[in-house]
Design a protein around this nucleic acid. Structure first.
Lengths: 196, 196
DNA sequence: GTCTATATCCGGATAGAC
DNA sequence: GTCTATCCGGATATAGAC
């Protein structure tokens, strides 16, 4: 789930997508514009429309790319060979990276509030993304509990949904207050899941 | 923390505030307009500007009112006389009402994503609101653990922050998926806090 | 306190030249 | 692929009549 498969100077199309995602996570979908992207990129907004005709196309592409990254990432041998609690740590690391970059919010946390104002295609993609992520985490939790290295009550699916919404909410808290608030919640999560 | 202190036909100023809050929770701050309120209210948008000159005024008033409601509510004898775990249930009830109304999101969950695009005054008020709410819940949790009726590890403040972000996130989940997702998370929370 | 009318600006989007 | 130029709609906000 790294953020730049391209190492240096990606093509315009990709640079647009990168910047759009950054703006989306910083300001929300309704509060960023083609002009913002154009200005930062040093081109005119008509050029953006050439690559992504409508804002719906652009928004949908952002979520789709994230889904692809997730599904590639979760199949990587480097990940699947890890123990469940290490896989969980690897997932945590993704959220910590969100926090460290000035974005401080995940896609779900950015789009959920405005959800009803989003184009249908974006709503669909976001539903798929969260479903896939929950599914993945539920598997990790279940395996971890079976191995005795993770502890929680109830069903893996319920716990996975709870953990993910907590992480999304914690990033939002960091944005409203500061990093400390995130770590407070984050450490509480770990305290409960990784006993010893 | 009831939502209509006025029983019937509140004055225009209040009806504007009610409607604006509803729209804010449904669409987010950047995606609702004076025209939306005006149309639904059967007046012209200039009339809204008479009561709330700028959108910043309007948004700030919404959060301030919610803070007043919270602080009045948490001082009510009807609440303070309850046992801690009943106070917690009363708080849960507020979120369940959010879910039942078609709003399905709390103020924090609605504003956090767009936070950096909000006027300064609104940011301040939202920080105060979440601080006061966390403070209140931390007290309830601490008392409940002392009484042996609530169970959790770690510090009350950390647990309070975690519970609140989880509830906010769970409402967002309900919006993106459906009610079932909320209840899944909600019951997981209760399972962990209210053991027996 | 609400109206009409209007100013101003910015957003998404398209046409056609280069 | 990117530009200039332009259309259109919608948003916040104000002035002044009633």
């Amino acid at each position: 789930m790294s953020n730049q498969p391209e190492v240096l100077t990606p093509d315009t199309r990709t640079r647009i997508l990168n910047l759009a995602q950054q703006l989306l996570l910083e300001r929300g979908f309704n509060a960023f514009s083609y002009q913002h992207i154009a200005k930062e990129l040093g081109v005119k907004s008509a050029a953006i429309h050439y690559h992504y005709p409508t804002k719906e196309d652009l928004g949908t592409a952002i979520i789709q790319r994230q889904r692809k990254r997730l599904n590639k990432w979760r199949g990587l041998p480097r990940l699947t060979e890890l123990q469940p609690q290490q896989q969980l740590e690897a997932l945590f690391e993704v959220y910590l990276e969100h926090l460290r970059s000035e974005q401080r919010v995940c896609l779900f946390g950015s789009l959920a509030a405005e959800f009803r104002t989003l184009p249908e295609a974006m709503q669909q993609e976001l539903r798929l993304l969260t479903r896939e992520l929950t599914e993945f985490l539920a598997g990790v939790l279940e395996a971890g509990r079976a191995a005795g290295t993770l502890a929680f009550k109830g069903q893996p699916t319920a716990k996975a949904a709870q953990v993910l919404t907590t992480l999304a909410g914690a990033l939002q808290m960091a944005r409203v207050h500061d990093e400390r608030q995130f770590y407070l919640i984050f450490e509480q999560l770990r305290l409960e899941l990784l006993p010893e």
